[in-house]
Write a protein that binds this DNA or RNA. Sequence first.
DNA 1: GGGCCTCAAGTTTTT
DNA 2: CTTGAGGCCC
Length: 767
Amino acid sequence: MDLHGLNDKQQEVVRTTEGPVLVLAGAGSGKTRALTHRIAYLIEEKGVRPWNILAITFTNKAAGEMRERVIDLLPSGGDQVWVATFHATCVRILRRYGELLGYERSFSIYDTDDQKTLMRQVMKTLELDPKMYKERSLLAAVSDAKNRMVSPEQMAIDASGDYRRMRYAEAYAEYQVQLKKNNAMDFDDLLVKTVELFQNCPEVLAEYQEKFRYILVDEYQDTNGVQFRLVKLLSEKYRNVCVVGDDDQSIYKFRGADIRNILDFEDAFPGATVIRLEQNYRSTGSILDAANHVIANNEDRKAKRLWTENETGAKVRMVSYDTAQEEAEGIVRMMENAVSRGIPLRECAVLYRTNAQSRALEERCVTRSLPYRLVGGVNFYQRKEIKDILAYLRTVANGLDDISVLRILNVPKRGIGQTTQAKVAEFAQQEELSFYDALCEAEAIPGLGKAAAKLDAFVSLIERFRVEAEEIPIADVIDMVLEESGYQKELEETEDDTTVQSRLENIEELKSKAEEYESEAGDDADLAGFLEDIALVADVDRMDDSEERLTLMTLHSAKGLEFTKVVISGMEDGLFPSFQSINDVEHPEQLEEERRLAYVGITRAKKELTLTMARTRMVNGETRYGAESRFVAEIPENLLEREDKSTLYRPQRERRDLYQTPPRRASKWDAYADYGKGSLPYQGGGSPFGKDVSQLFELGRSAKKAAPAPAVIDYHAGDRVRHTKFGDGTVLSMEDGPHDTEVTVEFDRVGIKKMMAGFAKLRKIED
DNA sequence: GGGCCTCAAGTTTTT
DNA sequence: CTTGAGGCCC
C-alpha cells in the first residue's frame, strides 16, 4: 500500500493498527486522509475483513465521504466497512435486537419537537405548573441524565429529598414510561438503550465485539458519556480502538459532549499510543497564526503547536458596519469580488453564530441574485405540512406512536375535538391500551355518541394505508394520504394560494426524498427505514457542494469543512461570544467553548478570512448595540487589516457612564445591565447589546447637551455638507424619527448614505 | 366543536 | 418581528 503521500506522523497513524491509539489531530492536519488510509491498510496489508471494521463519524456527510475515499483506495470491499454516525449505528443495532428490551422493530425516533410535546403531556399527568417547571429545562435535565447514564431512579435518590429535584426525577421517569408506551426513543435513548442492550444481553455484546475488531472514532472530542461507554464496551475484547480528535475543536458541550473523554483517554485505555498531527495543510500562515493566538487564551487544553509550510498569505480582514443589513450587503459584495478574482463560489462560505443571522444574508443574496445554499436553520422536516405527513406515515408504521396519532387525528378536521380525545385517552388508560388501540374499539368507549363513527372512519383510513404501504412505494403512500385523508383538500380551502403552493411543493420534495431513499436502500427499503433516515440525517449531510453556490451556515455546522474564502459575520460581544457565555460567571468554561468555536471558524479558511461586525442589530424586534467581539482583540494587530465602514457613534471608555443609567422600562435584558462592571477581563466599550438602541441615542443626545459644543443641525435638504469619513455631499432629504433626525446624503465619493443626524457629525459647508 | 383573537415568549449551537 | 398557545365566543 502506497503511503508516500503521507507525512511521518500520518504514516504512524496508519501503521499502528493494534491496541488503543489516540490521535491528536489539529485543524487541517489531514486526519481524514490518515484515517482512510488506515482503513485501507488494515484491509489490504493486514488482511482484516472489511466488515470487521467500524468507523464512527460525527455526521452522515462525513460518513459518506469517508466511505467514498476508502472505496477509492481499495480494489474491492471498501463498501463493506461499517461507516456511520453513533446514532445510525445504534439504530441499526436496535432495529435488530431492540425487541430484547421490549421495543417493537418499528419504533419511532422522536425529534426535539416530539420530545416537547411528550414532555408537555408528562407535565399534565404530573400536574407540574408550567410557570415553575419549563419543559425546556426538564428535557435538558433528562438529556443530561441520559448522557451520564443516570436512571430516573438514581436521579430520585440523588435528589435526596430536594422537592424540586424529586419532581424532575418524576418527570424523567414518567417521560421514559410514555416514550416506551409510544414505542419511541429520543436521540439520547438510541445510545442509552444500546448500552442497556449490551449490558443486559452479553451474547449480543459478544457478537458485536467479535464483529467490530477494529474501531475508529472520528471527532472524539465531541463524544459524550454514553458514547464513551459504547466505545469502551465494543472495544473491550480486541482493544483495537483508534480515536481521533482535537480538544481545541470541542464545541458540543451543550449537548453533553465531555472533553475529558479525550483528555483522559490514556487513563481509560492503558497503554495507548498517542500520535500528534500538528502540520496544517489547509490554511495560510496568517490564518493559522490568528487561530493559534485566539485559542492560546484557553486555559484548559492539551498544549500543541500547529504549524504550516504554506505561504503567509493575505492578512485577516476585520470590517465593521452600522447594521446587519449593511454587513450582509458588504459580505455579498465581497463574495462577488472573490468570484471576479477567480475563486469559485462553492469555495466561499459565510459562517455565523446563530441561525437568525442567516436571514439578512439570504435577503441580500436574493436581491443581488447571488446563488446560495443555506445549511440548517428552519429545518425542512419541521415544517407543518411535512410534520403532518410524517405523522401519518409514523402512525402507519408504528401504531403505538400516540404523539403522531394525536397530531393527525383531527387534521384535516374530522369533527374529533378535545372532548372526544379526552374520553378516548381516559378509556385507553383504564384499559391499558395505546391511544390508537383504544380508537379501534370506539364502540366500547362510553359517552362518545356520534363521535364513535368518526373514530371508526379514521381507523379504517389508517388501516387502509397500512395494507397499501406494504405494497406500493412510499411516495404513492404519501399521495394516498394527501387525497384520501382530505388533507390536500383542506389545505387548498383554508390557506391562500401562495402558501398552498409552497406547502405542496414541500410535500413533493418529501416524495422525491422517499424515492431517493427507496432507490438507495433497494430491497431493504421500508417505511420505518425511511422515517429513520429522516430523523438521523442532518442538514449538512444533504449539502450538495458541487453546485456553484455561496454556503451560509452556523459555525457549528461548519465543523469538518473547509473553504477557500471564509467570512465570519456578527463578530460582536454578546452575539459571539454569546451573552450566556459572557455572563455566566459560575461557568467560565462556557467562554472557552465559544473560543473553540471561533477557532473552528477561523481554521475553516484556506486562503482568505474576513471577520465582520454590525454595530447595531435587530434581535426579536429590538435594535441592539454591540461592541467588537473580544476574540478579534485576541488576534495580534499585525495580522489584521481593519476597515471601518460604519458611521455610528462608537463607545469609548470614558463614556461608560452612558450605559449604566437604568433602563427606562423593564425588560428581560435587565439581567445584563450590570454587565461590564464586574471583574470580567473585558472592561472596554461598555455594555454590548442589551439596550434598546433608541435609548442609546437618547443618552447620546443628553451627553451632547452637556458637552461644550453640541451638534447643531443647521443644514437642510439641498445643502452641501461635510462628513469626517465620507467627505463632501449633498443632503437629499431629512426625516424626523422618534429620537433623532435621519439624514440622507449623496456623497460625491461614496454615494448615498442614510445616517442619524445626532451622530453623523455633519457640518454645513458653503460651495 | 371550531374559529378567531389576543398575548406572551423566543434563539445559541444539533445528532 | 414572528410564532405558538390559550381564552373566549359563536
